[in-house]
């Protein structure tokens, strides 16, 4: 059902798994005026995927995942604006490394605790980074952020144009590479082991697994991926603002994951797509109703559809097959 991978089941890429990539490629040709929204969706899929690794697979609840997105975003921004390093791949690697590094450091602390204390620590760390972003004017530009980020053309050829063609393809390729890695990981013994920790931590201890170290590994990987998403966000919008560190983003990404379906790779694909398209259509016209709608949606999901959209589809198709 919710679970994929493990020792019993095969790992071949199914037909349905090709679908998102076909849709993404079709969108490139058919919807040229929406490419910057498209790039944003791809970036948030990446970010949501990183959250799914720790929340959906390892069962760690965090209110501060925005920290890693923010770190990646500011890394790219600071490298370009303050250090004059405009190489896209250098920025990408630096963002991933800094995200992962900070993930390892904070994870070492956060993962020692549990329940409310853990939740509070993620919240407090997010708050502290927001404060740093806001007050370290000389580095982050404070409340104004860092406008005017420059990115060199990819391979010296493809320039980041303002309709976002290059940006879209670039994000798509990065997402594809990360997805491929994450998918392998989810189906590997490591992925099975993570599911084990989420399902029954006491049992994992009794099997001889050093649970804390394992969680630290996945937390670090997740933070690195979120960092990559942050770099992409800066590179495609050519600016960084404080909002990348905000609770709104940490909340949004949770909503997107829940909406799509937790603990299944493609929940992270469906959620951000639906959420961001709806946001683009509705949020500017009806700002009040938008946040009401998001809140209401969360209630619906919690009380009626814990599996999110993909969970619903599973249920419906199971019913259709029965009848």
């Amino acid at each position: 059902m919710m679970h994929s991978g493990g020792y019993a089941r095969g790992s071949r890429i199914g037909v349905l798994e090709i679908l998102p990539w076909l849709v993404a490629i079709a969108a490139f040709f058919l919807l040229p005026e929406y490419l910057s929204l498209g790039a944003r969706i791809l970036i948030f899929i990446l970010f949501t995927l990183s959250l799914d690794l720790i929340l959906g697979y390892a069962g760690i609840i965090t209110l501060g995942h925005s920290v890693f997105l923010g770190l990646g975003a500011y890394t790219a921004g600071i490298l370009s604006v303050k250090a004059g390093i405009h190489d896209p791949f250098l920025q990408l690697i630096a963002g991933a490394a800094i995200g992962a590094g900070f993930g390892a450091i904070t994870g070492a602390v956060v993962l020692r605790t549990k329940d409310l204390t853990q939740l509070m620590l993620t919240l407090a760390i997010a708050a502290i980074m927001m404060e740093v972003g806001n007050k370290a004017n000389w580095l982050t530009g404070g409340a104004d952020g860092l406008p005017g980020v420059q990115v060199n053309p990819l391979f010296g050829v493809f320039e980041f144009d303002f309709i976002g063609k290059t940006g879209y393809v670039y994000c798509l390729v990065v997402l594809f590479i990360v997805w491929f890695f994450v998918r392998r990981m989810v189906y590997s013994p490591f992925g099975a082991m993570l599911t084990g920790i989420r399902e029954n931590t006491a049992r994992m201890h009794a099997l001889g697994a050093p649970v804390y170290k394992r969680l630290l590994v996945v937390y670090t990987i997740s933070a690195g991926i979120a960092g990559i998403a942050g770099v992409l966000l800066t590179q495609t919008t050519q600016s960084v603002g404080l909002n990348v560190l905000s609770f709104e983003i940490a909340g949004d990404v949770l909503v997107m994951l829940i909406l799509g379906g937790v603990g299944r790779i493609y929940g992270a694909f469906v959620g951000p797509t639906v959420y961001l398209i709806a946001h683009d259509e509705l949020a500017k016209q009806f700002p009040e109703y938008w946040s009401f709608g998001v809140g209401f949606l969360l209630l619906i999901v919690v009380f009626f559809a814990r599996g999110g959209i993909l969970g619903l589809i599973d249920k419906i198709s199971a019913r259709v097959r029965k009848s």
């Binding site: 609840i61 829940i258 946040s291 709608g293 809140g295 209401f296 209630l299 919690v302």
Partner: peptide
């Protein structure tokens, strides 16, 4: 924890709208 967190976040969003 997770449903509780999500549900109360939902309440927050709705109240902000109101």
């Amino acid at each position: 924890e997770l449903p509780q967190v999500l549900f109360t976040m939902g309440l927050i969003f709705m109240s902000i709208a109101v």
